[in-house]
Amino acid sequence: MTVQLYARDIGAGTPLVLLHAFPLSSSMWLAQREGLAGRFRVITPDLRGFGGSRLGDGEPSVDAMADDVARLFARTGLSRAVVGGLSLGGYVAMALCRRHPDLVHGLLLAGTRAGADTDDVRGTRLRQAERLERDGDVTVLLDEVLPDLVGPTTFQQRALVYGRVRGLVQSTPAAAAAWAQRAMAARGDASGTLRELNVPALVMVGDEDALATEADARAVAEALPNAELTVVPRAGHLCAVEQPDLFNQAAAEFAAALARAR
């Protein structure tokens, strides 16, 4: 079954397609829609199974999620866009670069890794997927994933932000989370794709990110032929949610420079 992604599409100008983190939805991009839509066309889809998008069937695969995004391009009349992805969204963005490179005008990767999972991480994902399927709720995500989604600064000083993230995790459908965990566990190394990419890239990472570390971000940036690295202070894995003004400023400067270079 072909999945048609639900997407919010606002603003005008250079298109900026933002792909959300696991286990959230496009709701996480609220500050980006508010802060960037005055200068850019901001498109924020819900990846399959999350938010307003149906899960469909088929083998769990990040490639399938990238193909969903490519169909969204066709449906919305987009020929090329700056594609940004955070966490899971970054994995999908890298798969899009491999499978549909002509769609990508520029690449923004935040809080993500190029390498495949280690055996330990893969085992954890599959164990969590089994529990999500068995329990039919997201308790395992609240217990094991939520604590690492934000940095200690956010946890200690930004109670509203942490509460919002917790609410987004709580509203995640268990079946979609299990499917996505299996998809991420099965993905391969994307370093070769990055090395062959011929568009500018911006790599971002929170300096308190425990899931995709600054070392991971540097490895991503070094694999890309034309990339800048921005470290976001006092932010963990969800740097776009924890420090939206800093994230938006960097994303806007990157997209605007691409527009000028056309």
Rank of each mutant, 00 (worst) to 15 (best):
P101A: 09
P101D: 12
D102S: 10
L103Q: 14
L103W: 08
V104Y: 08
H105P: 00
G106L: 06
G106P: 09
A110G: 12
A110C: 12
G111H: 01
R113I: 14
A114P: 09
D119N: 01
D120Y: 11
R122T: 09
G123C: 02
T124L: 15
R125F: 15
L126K: 06
R127D: 12
A129G: 11
A129Y: 13
E130R: 14
E130L: 10
R131I: 13
R131L: 14
L132R: 07
D135C: 07
D135R: 08
G136V: 02
D137L: 02
V138K: 05
T139I: 02
T139A: 13
T139F: 00
V140M: 02
V140G: 04
L141I: 15
L141K: 15
L142G: 10
D143Q: 03
D143I: 00
D143Y: 00
E144S: 07
V145H: 03
P147H: 04
D148N: 11
D148Q: 08
D148R: 13
L149H: 08
L149F: 09
L149P: 11
P152A: 13
F155N: 02
F155L: 12
Q157L: 11
R158H: 10
V161W: 15
Y162H: 13
G163N: 08
G163F: 02
R164P: 01
R166P: 01
R166F: 00
G167I: 07
V169A: 05
Q170W: 00
Q170G: 00
Q170I: 01
S171E: 15
S171Q: 15
S171T: 09
P173G: 03
P173E: 04
P173I: 06
P173Y: 04
A174G: 11
A174K: 11
A176V: 14
A177R: 14
A177V: 15
A178S: 09
Q181M: 06
Q181L: 11
R182K: 11
M184F: 07
A185C: 14
G188S: 15
G188H: 12
D189C: 07
D189W: 03
D189H: 03
D189A: 06
S191P: 11
L194T: 10
L194G: 06
R195D: 01
R195H: 01
E196F: 06
L197V: 07
L197E: 06
V199R: 10
P200F: 10
L202C: 13
L202T: 14
V203L: 07
V203Q: 09
M204K: 07
D207Q: 03
D207S: 04
D207V: 03
D209K: 03
D209H: 02
A210R: 15
L211T: 14
T213R: 02
T213H: 02
T213S: 08
E214N: 04
D216Q: 10
D216E: 11
A217G: 05
A217E: 07
R218V: 10
R218S: 06
A219T: 14
A219M: 08
A219C: 07
V220I: 03
A223T: 01
L224D: 02
P225Q: 00
N226H: 13
A227L: 10
A227M: 10
E228F: 06
E228T: 15
T230G: 01
V231M: 00
V231R: 00
V232G: 07
V232P: 07
R234W: 06
A235V: 03
G236R: 06
L238H: 05
V241C: 14
V241R: 13
E242T: 00
Q243M: 04
P244G: 03
D245I: 02
D245Q: 11
L246S: 04
L246E: 06
N248C: 11
N248S: 12
N248H: 11
